[in-house]
Design a protein around this nucleic acid. Structure first.
Lengths: 245, 245
DNA sequence: AGTCATATAATTGTATCCAAGTAAAGCGCT
DNA sequence: AGCGCTTTACTTGGATACAATTATATGACT
């Protein structure tokens, strides 16, 4: 019963074509962590699954590749992107630069009606969290950040942040513990309070702290490869004393 | 004798394919204002010109469309983008947010060797301007801004700014007078001096002023459509008294 | 003359086909 | 058993052919 997870950027006035639906489905599946990082995406399989030819699939994959949600190795095909530790750090650093710097503009553009929209997103986020839908909560948490920046009315900035937020979903999937639910419990509400009072500087500091907390809640260490891990795991397992289950 | 104008973003580790060369040529032609905004880009013509099939061309066009350098109307084809006045304002606003906010990071990352790289860009910009190559000067001026942000080492940010800078070329082509040569005469050197002295705050203020000056040097008014203009032009021309050439 | 409808030309959208490249399996050898 | 080579299967890369859509030009009608 998840709300429709649509890509944030409308990408101009390009009206939705046939393959746009395929894009949105894949996009949603990735950011909702149904397709985990590393999952291979063969063109044939997708074409068959969506009932179209490989041509249409390739267009969609290209778009996702440009948005860095999938990685395409030449002659090897596409798979859901696995951001490296450095990439992850850069994504967070970029988010800090943009979201903090835009905070004065956001505060200036705040109106009660617009606050309501954000408040509703927070409510839905809490509901998803309460229902145990962690992945949906992460997406909603990201949408909060995007909708927040949307108050600036600056489409290029919003599109770019939407991209960074999408990549953040991948990063959480890779480096987060099962407990990491996007942003902290009721932190977003704190920001709304600051905005309602028009405290731009405090809001900016809050955002920096908020993003730092999320980043520091991750285990940003390069995951070990499967090969040596398996070897060690087996020898370790062979030498382990037997224990009844 | 223009230096190779390559797209700033390396777009990951995706090694250059065959169509990447086509992309770079089209990219350069657009930002150098050889292909002016509004120019139609039929797939057949391009395919024939580059000696490849339409398949490869479409991939390139899709990428350019994603970067907002061309506009693709469904069933109508692609043409060089014509940013609206609002788009232009948003591009500049986005640049102000990013480039100003990143200035502390840039100042911190400044080293003499890196300043030399920037200084050389300024030199080449002046040389192009002196040689009357206005379009090249605009591109070099843009590269200065991108290389500046590259000091942060933040790839997502740099890629995004590169996109904004490219769009700035289009905006200048549409709303600039023949005199607008990207950035002011020897302004960039002023910034380098500030960076050398490590004055982060002054550098940030300088950048804001710099970008505002560029924007205000443009005639950001919606261009009149050709239709009524042509009618008026012809009647005006018909009633004009004859004059010997 | 102006306008609407039709027909034609041009361009894009999509599917299918063949070639090329890469990874994996199979085989023989040391 | 381990290592290297060859072959096979699979996947993508690119081109071509056909269908769909749009814009233009032509013509008849008001």
């Amino acid at each position: 019963m998840s709300a429709s997870i649509t890509p944030f950027s409308a990408v101009g006035s390009r009206r939705a074509g046939q393959d746009d639906a395929i894009y949105q489905r894949l996009y949603a599946a990735i950011v909702e962590q149904q397709l985990l990082p590393g999952t291979r995406l063969p063109e044939d399989t997708l074409a068959e699954a969506f009932g179209v030819s490989r041509t249409g699939i390739r267009k969609v994959l290209q778009r996702l590749a440009h948005e860095r949600l999938i990685e395409v190795q030449p002659n090897r095909g596409a798979s859901v992107a696995q951001p490296s530790v450095q990439e992850a750090r850069e994504v967070f650093a970029a988010r800090r630069v943009i979201e903090c710097a835009a905070m004065p503009l956001i505060t200036a553009a705040t109106t009660p009606a617009r606050l309501d929209v954000l408040c509703e997103l927070v409510t839905r986020e809490h509901a998803a969290l309460a229902a145990g839908e962690r992945a949906v909560a992460i997406v909603l948490s990201g949408q909060f950040h995007v909708q927040l920046l949307a108050l600036t009315g600056n489409e290029p900035l919003v599109d770019f942040l939407a991209q960074l937020v999408s990549r953040t979903s991948l990063i959480i999937a890779l480096y987060g513990s099962p407990a990491t639910s996007g942003c902290g419990h009721s932190e977003h509400e704190e920001l709304l309070a600051l905005l309602a009072r028009g405290e731009a500087d405090a809001a900016e500091r809050w955002m920096e702290q908020h993003l730092l907390e999320i980043e520091h809640g991750l285990a940003l260490v390069e995951p070990i490869d499967d090969e040596p891990d398996l070897k060690r795991l087996f020898t370790e397992l062979a030498q382990r004393p037997l224990r009844e289950l």
